[in-house]
């Protein structure tokens, strides 16, 4: 999560998978006119690729792919694209989200509807992707603050407490898992 995974298999696999997932996400987004798919699915796929990178490569290395801290603002930008498309149609004389009234010159109503749906889908994609990444970053961030302010001792001790009896097969005893070397 915070630090990179130690397994080289996972690192290489995730580095190869991330561009493929992003390419599939762009296909889902742009082909959403003609087939199942669209803004929401494409946005979730894009967010999943970034979150996989965060999970496997660690927060520091995945800053290259996507920087922490700009996700909330870009999510608001996605909502702004959606709302401004709807409001532009509203101000031009039609109803909210009635794409045929979009004030773009040189296009007949079918072309305007095509373009309007594309704009809406772009807004949904950006909004969903950035919202998911913001949730992930917020969870990791609050986790880091909690372990920085409180002592990280009980957490590590509990993990060890759970794992130790299964690995070694010995009871750690009432005073907790102290590392006492057992004489052979």
């Amino acid at each position: 999560m915070k630090s990179a995974s130690t397994s080289p298999i996972i690192q290489v696999a995730i580095r190869g998978l991330m561009p493929v997932i992003q390419l599939v996400a762009l296909y889902v987004f742009f082909h959403g006119h003609y087939s199942p798919g669209g803004g929401f699915q494409g946005g979730v796929l894009l967010a999943v690729s970034v979150m996989l990178g965060r999970l496997a490569l660690g927060m520091d290395m995945s800053q290259v792919v996507f920087r922490t801290g700009i996700a909330v603002g870009l999510s608001a930008l996605g909502v702004l694209i959606y709302a401004s498309t709807g409001l532009a149609a509203l101000l031009a004389g039609g109803e909210f989200l009635n794409y045929a009234f979009l004030p773009i010159p040189g296009l007949d109503p079918p072309g305007l509807r095509n373009l309007g749906i594309l704009l809406i889908e772009a807004g949904v994609t950006v909004g969903v992707m950035m919202a998911l990444i913001a949730i992930y970053d917020e969870i990791v961030d609050s986790r880091g603050e909690a372990s920085a302010t409180a002592t990280p001792e009980p957490e590590a001790r509990r993990m060890e407490d759970v794992r130790k009896p299964r690995e070694k097969g010995v009871d750690p005893g009432p005073e907790g898992p102290e590392r006492t070397p057992v004489a052979p």
């Binding site: 999560m1 979730v44 796929l45 967010a47 999943v48 999970l55 998911l132 992930y136 969870i139 990791v140």
Partner: peptide, 10 residues
Amino acid sequence: AGAVGIFNIL
């Protein structure tokens, strides 16, 4: 199968 799995692992 994608996003929920990642959040569960987190």
